[in-house]
Write a protein that binds this DNA or RNA. Structure first.
Length: 166
DNA sequence: GCCAACGTTGGC
DNA sequence: GCCAACGTTGGC
């Protein structure tokens, strides 16, 4: 794999608002609207080339729908200064923006949704904020074991992902 | 700095 | 639609 090795992430979105198929159609999009400091800090750690799982929350079924890649590192979230947006933040100053976004591109749609139940069945995911009760973090780092076990659970291999889609 | 009230997340 | 769990706000 390339050097430095990419960091791995999981990013949640509600598919009724923006789902993996929307990203696949657009090719590339801003990941904006994150309004939680811990999640924002993870966005700021992302580097071009990092890979992420696109997770559908508040969905039937909830689960991972595809793989994405970071194509632009953190810069000010456009919506915080948009009065028409529900993500408008009056307390965010233009000279010191409070919220960040990255740009991501679609890499690969999972052949089927990897459901939350299926993730819970994977030992690698036992301690993830995703599966732990009561945590609502919308952007989180993944271990290589978590990432690869999720791929494997839908019949994908990291080598194939790298060879065919990156 | 405490903490009650409130708003949001997100599975069910 | 319910509601548990959590983060944020704001009075004190």
């Amino acid at each position: 794999m390339s050097f430095p090795p990419p960091q791995l992430w999981l990013l949640k979105s509600e598919p009724d608002v923006f789902g993996y198929p929307d990203l696949a159609r657009l090719g590339r999009e801003r990941w904006n609207g994150v309004r939680n400091y811990q999640a924002r800090n993870f966005l700021r750690e992302m580097r071009v080339g990092d890979l992420g799982l696109f997770y559908h929350s508040n969905a039937k079924p909830a689960g991972v729908a595809g793989v994405l890649r970071v194509v632009r590192e953190a810069y000010p979230d456009d919506l915080q200064f948009d009065p028409a947006s529900e993500y408008h933040d009056l307390r965010s100053a233009a000279e010191n923006p409070r919220w960040s976004m990255v740009d991501v591109e679609a890499v690969l749609a999972f052949p089927t949704i990897l459901t939350l139940d299926a993730l819970r069945a994977l030992p690698e995911w036992a301690n993830s904020p995703l599966t732990r009760r009561g945590t609502r973090l919308s952007v989180m780092p993944l271990t290589p074991e978590q990432f690869c076990s999720a791929l494997a659970a839908v019949g994908l291999r990291l080598e194939d992902l790298v060879a065919n889609h990156l």
